[in-house]
Write a protein that binds this DNA or RNA. Sequence first.
DNA 1: TAGATTGTTAATCGATTAACAATC
DNA 2: TAGATTGTTAATCGATTAACAATC
Lengths: 204, 204
Amino acid sequence: MINPKVIERLILYRRSLLMDGEARSGQIYSHEMAVLAGVSAPQVRRDVMAIGYSGSPITGYDRQALLRALGEMIDPPEPESVALVGVGDIGRGILHYFQGRRPRLAIAALFDKDPDKVNRVIHGCRSYPVEEIARVVPSLKIRVAIISVPGFAAQDVADRLVNAGVRGILNYAPIRLKLPEGIYIENRDVILSLEKIAYFARQT
Amino acid sequence: MINPKVIERLILYRRSLLMDGEARSGQIYSHEMAVLAGVSAPQVRRDVMAIGYSGSPITGYDRQALLRALGEMIDPPEPESVALVGVGDIGRGILHYFQGRRPRLAIAALFDKDPDKVNRVIHGCRSYPVEEIARVVPSLKIRVAIISVPGFAAQDVADRLVNAGVRGILNYAPIRLKLPEGIYIENRDVILSLEKIAYFARQT
DNA sequence: TAGATTGTTAATCGATTAACAATC
DNA sequence: TAGATTGTTAATCGATTAACAATC
């Protein structure tokens, strides 16, 4: 199993290759990829090795073949649905921003506690009360969720999601969720990030 | 200088102490703090040591004194202004969510390229064209900025911000910014995060 | 004093970087 | 072949964990 930092770099490599319009086909060397992605060349070689793709000492890597190998690692084999819980400011922002950007990854269900926000279609997406997580999440085979509810509600929501089959969570709520082993989580607390950045901006 | 992971934990310790309403005053042991913040007890002790505060082998740490020490490290000495560039879906979500939550840290200026979005007041905050960054950022002594513009515009915006005196950036644009040494940056690319989470959710 | 906790050092772990032999 | 690059191993670096002497 590949670790999170490696996966992140693999995603960056793919983007770099796709955005490097100059030469979508042809060959590319590790040091060129390194410049594009902002990492070191040996790092690129190690990462490429990790996905089982190999290049040639003479011609480097084949762009198209490398993109295929990256896609096989990164992309879900079939389109995947994501749940978004909490249709507040942050949640709505993410929903609007995200929809339609990744064909194989789409927000397929919204959940909220507010009766005014449920049983509607928001930005092309059906919204349900949180009590329906247990029913809707398994029926849509959802395994990834975004939590953007207030801190006090986040643990309850997380428990419901995990019980319903979710295995990965992107958490915007300002608390550290307690989750069973094997659930992958990333915390994206905006206020914490800004406090941290402000600290470092003050130094120097 | 303290490293980012330590600062992040210090912020969590403070939150844990503030939210642990049970006993806002009195003493607390490292292993109790460890449970609250979800880290190990020796880790808590090392971090507390790093901010120059010390406890007693008998009574542990004094909550109020520790909170003061944490605040001195984390909080800006005087209220600090933050710039937000890009008043789109994500930017607007952050603006609405963030305003008023941290008294010493507030979004004080918005910037956008769209003529319809500038020279207005959005959610109590004045908006300017991006060309005015060079003038407004220094005049408000802004050192921290949030970038939530499309990828193709982000590098230009970042350069303008850094030239105007910004030293810390929270970047929501889907590119790796090239910045001079000494500028602190955190990347919060939503799509990248979800792709990563989806990968790990598929395993197991 | 006895004992649990603190401050601090040593051991471990993992990831990154540097070096280099293998290769086309 | 000569040479630049790849694949792969060794060295380095840093952070975390474990251990323990000092302390009240």
